[in-house]
Design a protein around this nucleic acid. Sequence first.
DNA 1: TATAATTCCTACGAAAAAGATAGGAATTAC
DNA 2: GTAATTCCTATCTTTTTCGTAGGAATTATA
Lengths: 129, 129
Amino acid sequence: MIVSSKGRYALYIMAELAKEGGNSLRQIALRQNLPYKYAESIVSLLVKAGFVESRRGKKGGYSLTRRPEEYTLSEILKKTETSLAATECTEGGEGCPRAATCPTLPVWRGLDETVDAYLSRYTLTDLIK
Amino acid sequence: MIVSSKGRYALYIMAELAKEGGNSLRQIALRQNLPYKYAESIVSLLVKAGFVESRRGKKGGYSLTRRPEEYTLSEILKKTETSLAATECTEGGEGCPRAATCPTLPVWRGLDETVDAYLSRYTLTDLIK
DNA sequence: TATAATTCCTACGAAAAAGATAGGAATTAC
DNA sequence: GTAATTCCTATCTTTTTCGTAGGAATTATA
C-alpha cells in the first residue's frame, strides 16, 4: 500500500479547505464522513507542515496558506504518510549492507522517482473540479 | 511501502535461479542471507504461480520454467506481494461507497498503472548482469 | 462574565499486516 | 537405510495502521 487512509484523509481535508465555506474540522469530518478525532491528528500534521493555518476559539477553524493549485499531491502525502518510499531499502536511515552491489536497489530508486513524478502532476485543484 | 521483504526476497530467489548452479533452496538462502523457512514459504508461491518447478528428494531443487528475460518484475511481485495496489481503494473487493464521485479514485488508478508500467520494464536479466 | 465552539496536546488501545519460526511428512539419489 | 531435499500446516512476535479518550487552552458572542 503506497497511500494509507491517513494520507487519503489528508487529501479530503485539504480539498474541503480548498472549497471555502464552513471550515471547522467538525463540519469537514461530518461532510467527508471521517472519524473526527483521527481527522484532528491528521490536520495537526498539515499545520505543522505549514500547509494550513488555524484560528482557535469559537468561529475558529482552518484555512489554506496558499492557493489550491500550488499544492501537489506529492508534497501533501509526503508530510502525512509515514513513508512514501517504495521499499525499506530507499527509506533513509539504516543503510543496507548489500547497497553497494544490490541489483534491485536502482530499481527501487527509480520507482520512488516514478511515483513522485506522477503524484507531482496533480494539485488540489484537480480534486475539486 | 510498495514492495515488502516478501517480494524482494522473491526477486533474490528468482535471480539466483536465473544464474544456474546449486539450486537447492538451502544454498540459495545461505548465499543471499535469507531466513530459510521464510524463503520456503516464498518459493512455494513461485511454484504455485508456475514461475518455478521443483524436483524433490536428494539432489532436488528448483529451476525456472522460462528464460530469465521472459519474467517481468511486475508479474513476480504481483504473485508474491499481498497487494501491489496503490491504495485500499484500488484493491478488488469491497467497493467504496464514494467510488462513483470520488475525485481521488482516478488518481489511484493512474498510480497503479504507472507503477505497473515501470515494473514491467524490468526483467530478471536486469538483475543478473 | 458565563457559555459554547473550537483548536491543541498527550496518552492509550485494538486490529491487521509483516516477518518470520517450528515441526514434521513425503520424496528421492546414492 | 540415510541424508538431503521439497512440501504442508500451524503458530508466534513485532510493527504499523487506524483509530479512541480525556481534557486543557483559546476565543466569539450573548
